[in-house]
């Protein structure tokens, strides 16, 4: 899937403070029947987001005024479970570009990176601090500066304290892909001469 490059994202943050959110939560299997890669955003977090009769669940954060933004702040081990890339598509199509957590499941992390979503990993103490900041000022404007690898927040409430540890890590190759909106498929397809040479000596 092609995606918009990411450079600097400035947005409110949506806080979903739950650990171990699995990809069945992000998008249940019954919404995976499409052969296209569009149309998944409306079913993001479906069974939390809608009541059994299909109406929006007013208790769920995406249905509240603070539920719109490009940055999702969430608990540890995000994206565990099924390998479904539909989870990354649903998050992206809803409008998220950055997910902040203290840990991502391996397959989800790769799926996110391949689809223009930045999995921004921080240590558990930093995550706790970010949650505090958001609690103090849910409407603060945060900035994720990918080229400089910096995360900052600007409080709207004079009483809130938005200072936070700012630097984050990311693999340089993956960073480049996100900034330029390119992906790994073209890179690998370009390696065919080496791959064919490898195959000549590789028996299975």
């Amino acid at each position: 899937m092609s995606f918009e490059p990411i450079t600097i994202i400035t947005s409110k943050v949506v806080r979903l403070q739950v650990d171990n959110i699995d990809t069945d939560r992000i998008i249940p299997a019954r919404f995976l029947k499409s052969v296209d890669s569009s149309g998944f955003g409306e079913n993001l977090f479906h069974d939390w987001r809608y009541q059994p009769d299909g109406s929006p669940n007013p208790e769920f954060v995406l249905n509240k005024p603070e539920g719109k933004g490009q940055i999702l702040l969430t608990g540890k081990n995000f994206g565990c479970g099924s390998s479904r890339e539909h989870a990354a598509w649903a998050l992206y199509q809803y409008g998220f570009r950055v997910i902040i957590s203290s840990g991502f499941a391996d397959i989800f992390r790769t799926n996110a990176l391949n689809n223009g979503l930045l999995p921004l990993e921080v240590d558990p103490d930093t995550l706790a601090r970010l949650m505090e900041i958001h609690q103090a000022d849910p409407f603060a404007i945060w900035t994720v500066d990918l080229p400089s690898q910096l995360l900052t927040a600007n409080c709207q409430l004079p009483t809130a304290d938005c200072r936070l540890p700012t630097a984050f890590e990311i693999n340089p190759f993956r960073k480049q892909c996100l900034i330029t909106g390119s992906d790994v498929i073209d890179y690998l397809a370009g390696l065919k001469p080496q791959i064919i040479e490898f195959e000549a000596n590789h028996l299975i």
Binding site: E85, A88, N111, N114, N115, V184, I185, L188
Partner: peptide, 11 residues
Amino acid sequence: GTSEVEMVMAS
């Protein structure tokens, strides 16, 4: 994931 499925198909 599906992007990686595509990578394996391609390379």
